[in-house]
Structure formats: C-alpha cells, structure tokens
Write a protein that binds this DNA or RNA. Structure first.
Lengths: 348, 348
DNA sequence: CTGTTAGCGCCTTCAG
DNA sequence: CTGAAGGCGCTAACAG
C-alpha cells in the first residue's frame, strides 16, 4: 500500500551490522549509557545521523510500558476555555517529553466512553478529562483507576468517582459576583443557569443563591432560567425573560456566551445595559472585552488549569498513582466592567 | 513505580490459556476472521468481555506499522482559527478510527523541528501542519516525504516544499473585501499587514494591492503597516497611524484581532467607525459580531478546512501517498457588516 | 566495556 | 477450522 520510496527505515540492527557491534551496544550508545566507550558512542551517533536514524518509539513503548503520551478528552476543542486549557496541558507535557492525544466527546456520552477505551488501548500514560454534558455516571473511567493509570478531571468533574481534579471555585466566584451586583444596588437579580446536572453550573447557581441569602434578598425561582452554555441559549432565555410583565434589574449568566446572547436581545429591544438591566457573565472570554458595554465577569485561569492538570499527572506518574488524590482548586477573580455598574443619578 | 493494583492486564495469551486454545485462534476470533467457528468466537469474546480485555494497540502497531494516529502541529492551539480547524480534523479522524496527537509550536521554529522528529518517532500515520511564524525553510518535513508518509499543510503553507495543502483563497478574499471598501466610496485605504514572510499575510496584501490597482487607486506604501496577528499588534500600529498628519478613511486589517485592536484605539481617540474611518478584518471570529459596530470581515471555513485536511490524509494513506499532491483551496466569503459601510449623507 | 538472550503483545504465514 | 513458529524494533538482565 505504501511505498517507503526505497528509502529503507533504519533500525539499530542496521547500525549494529554496519559497525560490527551488537544491537545492545548501539541501543546503549544511543542513550549515552555510562558503560560504553566514547569511541563507540561517537561512531554510533555519527552513523545514526548519517543514516537519518530515528528511534521507533512504538517498539520502545512496547517494552517500557510507557508511551509518553497523555490522553485528553474535552467536550469541544474549539471552545475558548477548553482550547486554552489544552494549550496549558500541552505546554507542560511537551517540556516533560510527553505528547498529548486530544479527543473531543462532542458532548456525547457514547463517544466519551468509546474514546476512553481507545485511549486505554493506546496505552496513554495518563488521562485528563472534562466530561461531556450527557455524562451522568463515571463507570468508564474506572478502567483507568483499576489499572493505576493517573486520571485527572478538570472543570466538569463527574459524579460518583473519586480522582484527581482541577477545578475552580465556582461557588465563590459566583458568590462574589452576585454580591458585587447587590452592592451596586441591584435588587431583582435573575440567573441564567446552565444545565444543573453539570457541576460547575450547579455550583454557580448555589453561589448565586448564597449571596442573595446573605444579603437578605429572597430567592425567587421564577428568576432562574436553565440554559445551555452558548450564545443562542442566552438569547432564547432572554426572549422568555422579556415576555414577562416585570423585568429584573440584573442578570447573572452562567458563562460569557450566554451573557452575550442576552445582551444582543436586550439591545434589540432597546433595553439599556446596565441602565435598564445589568449583565454579568463567567469566564472572561475575549468577547467580554469587546462587547459594548464591556462585560463584568469572573476570570477562570484556563491556561493555569491546564498547567495544573498536567503537573498533577506528572506527579502521579513519577510518584505512586495510588497515593491520595490531589484536588486542586483554582481561585477566580472578579473582573468588574461597565455592564454591571449602577449608573450615577446623572445619566448622560 | 506503578503498581497495577493486582489488577493484571489481560492479554490474548491469558484468554488462550483459559480456553485451551492457541493465541492465534484468540487473535483471529477477536477480529472475526472467517475461518473461526462461531462457537469459539463466542467463547473468546465472552471471556474477553468478562476479563475486561483491551487489545494493546502498541503491540499491534509494532507489527502492522500503523499507529492509527495523525500528528497535528499548529502554532497556538488556543487561537480560534486553529482550534476550530483541529475540531474539524478530530471529527473526521475519529470517525475513521484515527487518534489525533496535537502539538503546538508556539510559533517557534526550533520547537516545530523537534515536534516533527518526535512525531516521526511516534510513527504517526500522517502529519497535518500549519507552520510557525518563524519557519522559513521546510527541510524538517522532508523526512516525512522521504518515507512516503502523508503530509498535509494548511493555512500557513511553508515555502520550498511541495506537498498536499489546504488553504483559502486569501488573495481573492482580500481583493473582494478591498473592492467592497472602494465601492463604498473609500479612497484612502490603509492596510495592517501581517508578517510578510507568512504566505497568508502576503497573499492578503497582494489582494489588497490588486484591488487598488484595478480601481485605479495609486498604491501608497506609507499606508501599509507590518503587524503581527494579535490585538496588541493592531493597537500598536493604530497608535503609529494616528501620529500621522493625515488619516486614511478605511483600514483593512490582516485578521480580526488586529482589526479589533485598531478599533479600540480609534474609539479611545474619539474617531468614529465607520464615519471617520471604516475598518475591516479577516477570519470572522466570534469577536467580529460582538464588537460595535460589527466588523466586516472575510469568512474562512476553519472547520471545513480541518475536514479537508483530514480527508486528504485519509485518501493518501489508503491510496498511494506518492501520487500527485492534492491542493485544496477553499473559498472565502465576504461578510459585510456595519464597520465598513459608508454612512448616508444623513448622519444620525 | 560489550555480546547473548529473551521477551514486550500481537499478527500472519505455513502446516496440519 | 486451529496450532506452531517467527518476528515487528527495542531494551535489559545476565554473562563475559
């Protein structure tokens, strides 16, 4: 099927033959084993270079039981948050000599299960994952735990399984954000909540409720709209909201795209932001600083989360994977921008 | 170092032993080889499932000389365009049973060379790449061509090497965009050009020049500013531009982030868009529809480009990689939005 | 300092 | 329909 263009693939045997030494000598010379004379090392390396020798990592993996790869599964690669986390993972992995196999579940449970099996077969040295929206049990990951292969969850942690994790303090982030809204003087604060079985969404919702309670604002479930994570979901919930008789004076959206979807609809209806209605999001995506007014939001350190996940993996492969699980919680930071500022009594 | 938790990894030998058949029989049964009785197939598969057997893809790869993986190298994973292309690649790859190893060169030539070698050693079945900004020669890719391993470049094609490619008609895209500006009545159109040794940037520049020429607008090199691809580069060039005595009435930026950086600076200086200066970008990123006014730009079908790249790879692995190279050029489409519209003589 | 040997887990001739 | 044997390329004991 494939012609190797006559350009034979060189193996250590070829080099060994050429130099009339054994394969083991070549193997050792190539890895700078201490008990090989400089002379032979030189000779071997020279020839290797000349012949354009490249070690076959597959063969080596088979023996060493380590492929120097990390599997990563995310719902959708192209989402800003995920691609940024991946960027962080890749950076750390590369520096430690690991390759990263990236897969997307496309928010499908079935596909996620399939990917887990594939990566197990591929003998990745570890697995870093953010589960799909559909994932309600985590049995498929048990395979990795059973085999003692490091497993790190980030962002969307699954329920029903204990392992290493990297998350963000969504509860606190939401709490502080909503508290900020309250302090600005907003009284009727709605929430565009994400799917409630997704933990991050749930926690943001809980943070929202807690802040209200703390400040003696009665919780009103009519002000909560369950949404997805995208612009269109924000727009849809916004239409619903606008069909109401009375409107809230502020909305906290589960993530920036949802907030943006909302803002678009508000603008269409001539509703001033933040004058008539304040808006806040979560994530601090690039769009947050581009929308007018700029969007108040909560920063999640996505790149650093990737760095943490990869670092935990590295710790677990070198140490004992069975040791206690590491649960890293990153802090969030409030980014106050114009979309949530109570206008002064002197409107322009 | 790693304890397999007593949970022994099952191999075909184990199953063979248990059933008192040979390894070959098990191997064949698992792949539904026609010359195996249904009875034994059943038995083997049942036991495999019971023991939670997972084939060792490494061992299989060693024999088959195919790892069922595609290597992908991009400058920066987290950039919208690249992550979207990756998404497209992964989708096609997954459906065809391939895994995707994603690497980022971080715009570094050295790292790119290193990654190419690593992926060669990892015996990927193919390589899909968008070269780094620093890459000025393509010698490192020759290794893949020599071995007859499918190689597909996309977006940033390297010079000095012929291979499969997926690109976009940047020249046409830019040409039509600039023509649109001209037809809107803008006369003094500046260009925030990207790094000129990057082909896509060069082609957009050429498209810009061609459109001017076609419409008899003299080219003025003082109106061309070489930039990078990010917001900050747009901002920097904008400051430079504003230090001039006379300003252009429109600017075509090499990509959306650069356009956005420019727009921010213009707004700060109270320059109205598009009234005082029209702006247009390239890429149609999410920010383009969020900025006020919405940004006129050129759509690159990023996801489809990924699909094309992966599809070409698939064609090349099954057919003969040495056959003629495939050069797929995607078309762009103009997205006219408010940032480039000549205001009617009746300003609000 | 170097060679011999055996094997990682799987797959495919070649023989029954 | 099934088994035995050899090998993919590399590595690590164990001997010299």
């Amino acid at each position: 099927m494939k012609k190797y263009a006559g350009n034979k693939v060189i193996t250590i045997s070829d080099i060994a033959k050429e130099l009339s030494v054994s394969k083991s000598t070549v193997s050792r010379a190539l890895q700078d084993h201490h008990s090989i004379s400089d002379a032979t090392k030189q000779a071997v390396k020279r020839l290797a270079k000349q012949y354009n020798y490249h070690p076959n990592a597959i063969a080596s993996s088979l023996f060493k039981k380590s492929t120097k790869t990390i599997g990563v599964i995310v719902p959708i690669i192209s989402h800003y948050f995920f691609s940024t986390v991946i960027s962080g993972i890749e950076d750390v992995a590369y520096k430690a000599g690991y390759k990263v196999i990236i897969c997307q579940s496309n928010e499908s449970y079935k596909r996620e299960v399939d990917l887990v099996k594939t990566l197990l077969s591929a003998h990745v040295d570890g697995l870093i994952v953010s589960v799909s929206r559909e994932t309600k049990n985590a049995g498929h990951f048990q395979l990795f735990l059973d085999k003692g292969i490091p497993l790190v969850f980030f962002d969307r942690l699954p329920v029903g399984i204990k392992s290493n994790s990297v998350s963000v303090d969504d509860y606190q982030g939401a709490y502080h954000l909503v508290e900020h809204l309250i302090k600005q003087g907003f009284k009727k604060i709605a929430h565009f909540a994400g799917p409630q079985h997704v933990i991050v969404a749930k926690n943001r919702f809980l943070g929202y409720k807690a802040a209200l309670q703390k400040h003696h604002i009665p919780f009103d479930e009519n002000l909560v709209f369950e949404t997805g994570f995208e612009r269109k979901h924000g727009a849809k919930a916004a239409e619903l909201l606008l069909s109401r008789d009375t409107l809230p004076d502020a909305v906290f959206a589960v993530c920036d795209p949802v907030a943006i979807g909302l803002m678009f609809v508000l603008k269409q209806h001539g509703i001033k932001i933040p004058g008539d209605m304040a808006v806040a999001g979560f994530n601090d995506e690039p769009i947050a600083t581009v929308i007018e007014p700029q969007l108040t939001t909560v920063v999640q350190p996505a790149f650093d989360m990737g760095v943490s996940a990869a670092t935990i993996f590295l710790k677990k492969v070198t140490e004992d994977a069975d040791a206690d699980f590491i649960e890293k919680v990153h802090h969030t930071a409030l980014r106050i921008r114009n979309s949530s500022l109570r206008l002064t009594p002197n409107p322009s």
